[in-house]
Design a binder for these strands. Structure first.
Lengths: 243, 243
DNA sequence: AACAATACCGTACGTCGTACGGAGAATCTA
DNA sequence: TAGATTCTCCGTACGACGTACGGTATTGTT
């Protein structure tokens, strides 16, 4: 009861989005600091180094395992030193997201209509495979409008530019592809995650729980589910393919 | 270093999925307990009461704000009492998920092909609106196969049964709709969440950040994004509609 | 009356994000 | 050169979290 809580309760998101104002400042490296050329000791750290370390950690162990302490440890600094560069974990995650967006390379401007869309889809797919934790960050509405996210948006739009779509339609179609790929990526990433966590392949899993399920599951009550589920389960031994 | 860690490190999911075996047991209320009619004191709690309380909390404040302590408090019991009925928070969430699935009612068997699919979509949409936290629970691959989830799967399948699709196609089309609706719901839920958190409508938000963005954003560098973004931003003052 | 099984839960441990304030380094001013 | 100023770095501490452990109270069986 000293002197915090000056702001609002500020219900925290599970997905971990930061305060828009502070995130924007960080994303565009708008740490004014323009004046006062530099008085104190030289910084030994930087936002980029922190973000890179955090991304490595999240890539390897998932967002759940990302903690300020672990990031600091990896950088060989005290935990609280991070807060000199980053206002909080939530904003750090926003910057991580934008930075990861920047790792997409190439252009999708050539080829036919269909080919371009597929190129977009595949690029996003690869992005999510490389950084599965991005799927945990809720970033569809009011995305963190960092430089890389905008560059990506522009890249995607250019791919469908000059096809004869209105601006609004262009936005829609890019959004559609994005949503769809995200769904597919989510399934795949979850499957991979389950496999890592349980140490069982999908096939082994269904094999193990088929009997257990049969014990409690009244096939007569849900004939359609039983029939289709069996067929689908059998068919999905094969790897999942986007599209 | 006493005597835990007998299992494996068991990397925890952000989305909070539980141990399949224990989740299954809970979902089907397979707490054998069949023998030993009842020796101790009468249970004053039940899995259902716990799950209901947890769902209410998650509905109101989101998954991030769901804690065992708060659930217990709401039920007027000690925190650790919950663990008599539920092995851990992760499994509790699995059961919450299945229970929420059970709140969908109605059948989609009438009307044309198109109408049925839309009914499915709209039902899922409503479900996510009522329980936004479900989007946080990763449940696409290896879903928690509880009674309600299976019933829902069966209901959806029946809606597309007898249209002339193979079993595999039926599974695919149901999955497609599901993924798509989830994407749409995610966007809408995030938007609503942002609005609640920041106290700004989407329109206000764009209005506030347009200038700030203009300061750092070089429109010349991304002409397409600038143009389309402006148009799309303007158009989206209207409410979002699924489909 | 003695015993066994069960529900309840207080305490404690290790984790987390981060507020606070102090130590020391680099630069600017006098 | 001396002092003031403005930084970086970070040790400590607080209140949350999930949950392991073991104790106590309550019920049934014998």
């Amino acid at each position: 009861m000293s002197a915090a809580m000056t702001k609002k309760p500020e219900e925290k998101h599970y997905g971990g989005r930061g305060d828009p104002v502070r995130s924007m400042a960080l994303l565009w490296r708008d740490t004014d600091a323009g004046r006062a050329p530099a008085r104190g000791p030289r910084p030994g750290l930087s936002v980029d180094r922190i973000v890179d370390a955090a991304i490595e950690l999240a890539d390897a162990d998932g967002l759940a395992a990302l903690s300020m302490r672990r990031v600091a440890e990896r950088l060989g600094v005290g935990t609280m030193s991070l807060y000199t560069y980053v206002p909080s974990k939530a904003e750090l995650i926003d910057v991580m997201y934008d930075t990861a967006c920047g790792s997409v390379e190439g252009d999708f401007g050539s080829g036919g209509w269909r080919v371009r869309l597929e190129a977009i889809a595949r690029a996003n797919w690869d992005l999510y495979r490389r950084h599965p934790w991005m799927l945990q960050v809720m970033a569809m509405a009011r995305p963190p409008l960092g430089p890389n996210a905008i560059a990506g948006y522009d890249r995607d739009l250019r791919a469908v530019d000059g096809i004869g779509l209105t601006d609004l339609e262009m936005d829609s179609v890019v959004g559609m592809v994005s949503v769809y790929v995200q769904g597919a990526a989510r399934t795949a990433v979850e499957a991979a995650g389950s496999e890592r966590d349980t140490g069982m392949t999908d096939a082994e899993w269904w094999e193990a729980y088929g009997p257990l399920l049969a014990k409690v599951f009244d096939a007569a009550k849900y004939p359609v589910a039983a029939r289709v589920g069996a067929v689908a389960g059998e068919a999905y031994q094969a790897a999942y393919d986007p599209e």
